[in-house]
Amino acid sequence: MPSLVIQDLHVAIGEKEIVKGLSLTIKSGEVHAIMGPNGTGKSTLSKAIAGHPDYTITAGDVLLDGTSILAQEADERARAGLFLAFQYPSEIPGVSIANFLRAAVQARMAEGEELDATAYYKRLYAKMDMLKIDRKFTSRSVNEGFSGGEKKRCEILQMAMLEPKFALMDETDSGLDIDALRIVSEGVNTLRGPDLGVLMITHYQRLLNYIVPDYVHVMWDGRIVKSGDKSLALELEAKGYDWVKKELALA
């Protein structure tokens, strides 16, 4: 079964170590939630896995279906089936969503293979309808002038179009209004299935009511310090991070 295995991962930015020995195995079909205070290294973890050049992996490994991906460029990892829904998606002036996604879809096709434009638009519109994104957005530049919530919705649209094996979703819920949270969650739930593994970073238990995780992990100072099922999120919400801190001090 396909898996994303993070083994004792250490990540540094410059000289500073941010992720300090984190291990986690995500199997296809599973949804893992990671919660943790601000600045604890959640985004760093997701970007390092995706292959951001500024993040140095000083020790450990990341395996996709049993093969280390650390030597691969970000785009190779993406084409191998890894998707990152960014906490802060970049704007790409002058490049429409339709053209951007078409280039991304094309990048996954074999050399010489031609993209069927009609089929592509049909699929794009279907996914947009699912996420209740106005079709006018296809001609807008990627993320340029988008509201916070529109950006997040556009990330999920891309995920739906690119059909990754593993998706790292970094605070996809933040910035979404109540209706949008429901729509985006429904969208993710539609994508959920035996062929997709998800690592979902969030601060809010609320999201987990919509996208019910199989596992919940608490990240603290670059490590996973506590794991459990969805009830851990409820407990965390009730007791706050001080509770985790106290438990850590006792250990």
Binding site: K47, A50, G51, H52, P53, D54, E73, A74, D75, A78, R79, F83, L84, F86, P89, S90, E91, I92, P93, G94, V95, N99, F100, L101, A103, A104, A107, R108, S141, Q158, L162
Partner: peptide, 26 residues
């Protein structure tokens, strides 16, 4: 900027394709 190129690479475009898309957008 590097973040923009990384964003595009994360979607599967090579660095060259990402640059070229950025330039065409410009």
């Amino acid at each position: 900027n590097e973040e923009m190129i990384f964003y595009m690479q994360q979607r599967g475009l090579t660095e060259g394709q990402a640059m070229s898309l950025a330039v065409n957008g410009f």
